[in-house]
Every structure is written in structure tokens, then in C-alpha cells.
Amino acid sequence: MIGWSNRPFRSVPGHQMRSVAVALLILTVSACGARPTNEVLRPTSAIVEDAKITQVYVATTRAPRTAGSTDFGYVPSLGASYAAFSVSTPPGHKTGRIEWPRDQTDPATSFATVDSTIMREDEFRTAVSNDPRKGSGVVVFVHGFNHNFPEALYRLVQLSVDSRADGVPVLFSWPSAGSPFAYLADKDAVAFSRDGLARTLSALVDDAEGAPVQVVAHSMGGLLTMEALRQLKLEGQDDVLDQLSVVMAAPDIDPDVFRAQIAVIGPMARTMTLLVSQDDRALDLSSRLSSHRARVGALDVADPRVERAARAANIAIVDISALPASNRINHDRYVELSAIYGELNSEQSPYRTSATALSEAGVYVLDAFLRN
């Protein structure tokens, strides 16, 4: 299957561990300035003309810091919590960006939370089911490694606004520690959240009443998504799997683990899409931390074995290396793809026919696809 390798498993010598630590420090410095805290989510009563307000629903295995609040931290919770957020984007919003508040939240220049509400599970399901956008489907975003809650929430808002998606945006947020030095802790949090995501997807498909349900997972969120799909298969919920459309951006998964997951799940009814890039430095670091085991998000689409395996598993693998990234890590190119998604699929787009082809199993290079 995909990415089979005969390379033996090796321990990491001390000098290589030091180089990994240095690389991690460089990536951390280049990627992160001051990180947002949950303070940025404190609702503001200010209203700005021409600001766009997006209603987002949340299912999370993060425990609230205080009972009954929407202040979600990194402590895991066995029982999922549910919430709704109304977030405004400023009139001057630039695609691909999250305009974070600086000193104080100003809806004229930054993302701003207008309202937030904690919900029971039945209230969450009813709200999503009755949302007028449901006819266009439900989009579930599963964030990746090193994300705190406001980063995950505002990323979904940005993706929803920039892609001009008409469906209901739902964030599934797992208890990432929100630290670049907590890789192993985040992997444990993924394993902890598998059942929670599987249950959420099952409920959303049931309540969608035939409307499409798409899962967009980034980085380590891809590992969580695959584990949840595997769980659904083992529970005999094929009817749920058949209604899911899955897109995984830069999935941080060992190829042999992915192969084992696909062996259980089987080819999905709707083509799964993997967005990959061989110069993704975050996945390169993940590979080094895993004794130089490759990552699915860095597959070589020029390898004929990859294409054969993709077609057999009903997977479309798209190399998006031609798209710009926001920093030198090259781990967030999917954000740029979301920004041009609406244009690619518009009725007037010269790329519409080619864009449709990306939903078919096989391998593609985005740069070549755009030229055609």
C-alpha cells in the first residue's frame, strides 16, 4: 500500500537528537510570535459595519477551565463539551490570514468573538440540524499538532470565510497542549480523542439527513481522523463512513500505520483526498523524531507505486508544493488552497473541469493542474 518502505526501524543517536532539538527550536522561533490566549475569545459588544459574522459550532474533548464556560484549555475531558461561537472578520480581512487582536480586540481590524454559548449535546445536535446552511452540508475541521483552542477556532473561521463555503462549520478540537515541545503528549491526546470524534461524526451524519458531511483534517489531526474512521468501521457503522468526504492536509502519519488503517477501513465510498508536499519541514522534523520514518503528508507523487496504491484505495493524492506557505515551515499550504477553492469551483472558472478531476482517485500535481 501507500508508502511501503523496507527501511528498518532505528534508534536515534545522541548527536541526531541534538540536531532534532536545534531544528525544533528554529522552527519554533520562525513560526511563532506571541501566541493568542483564550482572552481573545472574550465576547465584545462592538459592531462594525461590513464585518462578516460567522456562526461556528464546537465539539471538543478539551475540558473547560471553569464549569459551564466556553473557556477550553488543554486538559482532556472524558465527556465531550459543546458550544457555539459567533465570530466577526474585519472588513479589510486578507485571504489566508487571521488578523489577531493586538492589545485590545477591535472588530474593525481583527477577528472578534461576538458571542459564545455552552451547549448540551442535544442542543448542539439540534442547532446544527436546524441551521439554514445545512442544505449545503456540514464541514468538520480537525486541527493539528501544537494548536491551542483560539488558534483552532479562528482557523476554521478563516477557512470558512476564505473558501466561501456555504455549509455549517463545525470544529472538533482535541486537547493539544499548544506547545511545539509537546509532540508525544499531543499523540496521546489524539488517542484519547478517537472515540469522541467517531461519536461526533456519527451524530452529524445522522442529523445531516443526506446532506454532505466533509471532514478537513490537518497534520496530526489526520492521524486522529483515520483512527476515528477505523473505529467507525470496527463498530459496523459503514452507513456513516459512506456519507463522509475526507480531506487530509499534510497528514502526520507513518505510511505503514496508514496502510494498516486503510486495510481496516477499506476504500471509502467517497474519494479521500490527501494534500502533500515533500518540502514540509514540520513533517521532516516529525520523521526525525520517529527514527526517520516517512510521513504520508510528504509522499512522492512521482513514485508509480504511490499512484497504484492510491487508485486501489480510492484516494486522490495532490501535491500542493506550488502553493505559497505563510512561513519557512511549509506546513500550512492548505490555507492558501482554501483561499482559491471558491474561485477554482466557480461556474466561470477555467479550472472547473480540472478541479472536478481532483475528486477522482489517482495522483496530481497542483501546479500542472492549474496550467492545464
Results as ranks from 00 to 15, higher is better:
G297W: 00
I329T: 15
R293K: 14
I329N: 08
M1S: 13
R288E: 11
R305I: 00
S286A: 13
K187H: 12
R120A: 13
T70Q: 05
S287H: 08
A325C: 08
T54L: 11
P169W: 12
Y341K: 09
L223C: 00
I2W: 05
R311Q: 15
D115M: 07
D103S: 08
D239V: 15
Q261Y: 13
D280R: 05
L78R: 15
V190I: 15
A368S: 14
V306E: 03
H147L: 05
S287W: 10
P8N: 09
L78H: 13
D207P: 00
T60M: 04
S245L: 03
S176D: 11
L153V: 09
Q214K: 12
P304L: 06
Q348W: 11
Q158G: 01
D252K: 00
V205R: 05
A152G: 07
A108N: 03
E209S: 12
Q104C: 01
G167W: 11
R125N: 10
V335M: 09
A203T: 11
W174V: 00
E307D: 11
K233C: 04
A310D: 02
A310V: 04
P8H: 10
R308C: 00
H218S: 01
H15R: 13
T61N: 08
A228I: 04
A51P: 01
L223T: 09
S173V: 06
F141I: 00
S202N: 14
L366T: 02
P101V: 14
G221S: 02
G297Y: 00
I98L: 08
H331M: 03
S359M: 07
V264P: 06
F192R: 10
M268H: 02
K52A: 09
